[in-house]
């Protein structure tokens, strides 16, 4: 039997002032699956992704990733090498001075050799069509450019799974289409996208859930 790459069971989490955000939530993601999760603002979509990455600790529940239970920060270090998370606000994600160095940040953390990192940077720039941005300062990029660069920084880690948090919010149609095409063309990718954009989710996901009242409905 195939083991899910990500498996959540009975996840509950509450925030002060917001009440229960996730309540007894179950979720599994299998290798090769392309899953979309739709939810309204404040329904806990971001929280869900952050729980999978170990950035937020749930109050209750079991997190199994790559077949092993993950509890502490230490357990999640390995998880983060293999799962890429795209943040909602690209300004949070791009902190290096230049685009090139931002793409290199992850691979360098994985202690790849400089030649290899250079090759990866090259590849990512070509893949996303951002060669012309390589030497630009991150903070002078436009909104759409930042999103593409942020996606490149994630893909540069060569992740086994991608988690995308509202990847198309506030993007123009052209950039949205570019991300759509990229996701669809990478057949081997496993990913989970949360968004409230039904149109986009319909195009890029094969399986769709709705996050409501802290639980996922098929």
């Amino acid at each position: 039997m195939n083991i899910p790459v990500i498996e959540l069971a009975g996840i509950s989490i509450a925030f002060p002032g917001r009440g229960k955000v996730l309540s007894d939530l179950d979720f599994s993601l299998y290798a090769g699956e392309k899953v979309g999760i739709k939810g309204t603002n404040g329904s806990g979509k971001t929280t869900l992704l952050h729980v999978m990455m170990g950035l937020i600790k749930p109050d209750a529940g079991v997190i199994k990733i790559f077949g092993r239970e993950r509890k502490e920060e230490k357990d999640f270090r390995e998880v983060r090498r293999h799962i890429g998370l795209l943040f909602q606000d690209s300004d949070d994600q791009l902190f290096s001075p230049t685009v090139e160095e931002d793409i290199a940040f992850g691979p360098l953390n994985l202690r790849k050799s400089r030649e290899e990192v250079r090759r990866i940077v090259e590849e990512m720039c070509t893949l996303l069509g951002i060669e012309n941005l390589r030497d630009r300062f991150s903070h002078t990029l436009s909104h759409g450019e930042k999103r593409l660069v942020a996606l490149a920084t994630i893909l540069a880690m060569e992740p086994r799974v991608l988690l995308l948090d509202e990847p198309t919010t506030a993007l123009d149609e052209k950039t949205t289409r570019r991300i759509e095409e990229l996701l669809v063309s990478q057949k081997q990718l496993t990913y989970c996208i949360v968004s409230h954009d039904m149109n986009f989710l319909g195009k890029v996901s094969e399986k769709l859930y709705i996050l409501e009242k802290g639980r996922l409905e098929g």
Binding site: R77, R80, R81, F95, G106, N109, R114
Partner: peptide, 16 residues
């Protein structure tokens, strides 16, 4: 969190 998510463990490695 974004830095952690990309494998940051306390050291800044530089490309150039």
């Amino acid at each position: 969190q974004a830095m952690l998510a990309r494998g940051f463990q306390g050291t800044f490695w530089t490309l150039h």
